[in-house]
């Protein structure tokens, strides 16, 4: 592993309640998802997942994969799977270019959000992400970019931290090597 921020990223994400796992092969990914998804899975469109033939593998493994009509079918899904453009080590954040509506629905509505990140694509701090945000805004006339750090949380009742109010109650960050080295992927 050559990215020097993986450990810091992992700790920071775990500190805010995310699960972080380093997976070395697709088989491990399928097993991980299979154990945790009991229902339909919203598959967020993502070129590097397509390239790695992950959607086909998920279907072959018997998962109930939804990849169209998210508006109609999204509310009933139990999980969403997406890629991530890059991570931020200081805060354990994953950054998702989410301009396509399907990405947003898959990562906001279900209880569980699984996100695949190539560990090569971890930046040190949010300051390092600023040039990338600038590039996205250059490239995209309309843009919806999401920083996601841990699961959905609230402390609105008596300041007691409680997980999973409106967004996903679980965030699983799966580090999969060789997935993509393109931080601007979309």
């Amino acid at each position: 592993m050559t990215n020097r921020f993986v450990e810091q990223f992992t700790k920071a994400a775990q500190n805010v309640g995310a699960e972080v796992h380093l997976l070395h092969e697709q088989k491990a990914l399928l097993a991980y998802l299979g154990e945790r998804i009991d229902g339909s899975l919203l598959l967020s469109p993502c070129p590097s997942l397509e390239r790695a033939e992950i959607p086909a593998a998920l279907k072959a493994a018997g998962l109930d994969v939804i990849d169209s009509n998210f508006r109609e079918r999204g509310a009933a899904a139990v999980a969403g799977l997406s890629g991530a453009n890059f991570g931020i080590a200081a805060t354990g954040t994953v950054v998702l270019e989410s301009t396509a509506e399907a990405v947003r629905i898959a990562t906001t509505l279900p209880e569980k959000h699984f996100v695949l990140l190539d560990p090569q694509k971890i930046l040190e701090t949010a300051d390092h992400a600023v040039p990338l945000l600038n590039d996205f805004h250059q490239q995209l006339p309309q843009a919806y970019l999401a920083y996601i750090t841990g699961p959905s949380r609230t402390a609105d009742i008596e300041r007691v931290l409680t997980i999973g109010v409106h967004g996903p109650a679980e965030l699983h960050i799966l580090l999969l090597e060789g997935l993509s080295d393109d931080l601007m992927e979309r």
Binding site: V16, T91, T99, E101, A146, Y147, A155
Partner: peptide
């Protein structure tokens, strides 16, 4: 505000993004 390093979500929105096959 709360002593959090960052909130769970930071959402950057520019313009009329896609919505149900329209804008």
């Amino acid at each position: 505000a709360t002593g959090q390093l960052i909130t769970s979500y930071i959402t950057w929105i520019r313009g009329a993004v896609p919505c149900a096959d329209e804008s």
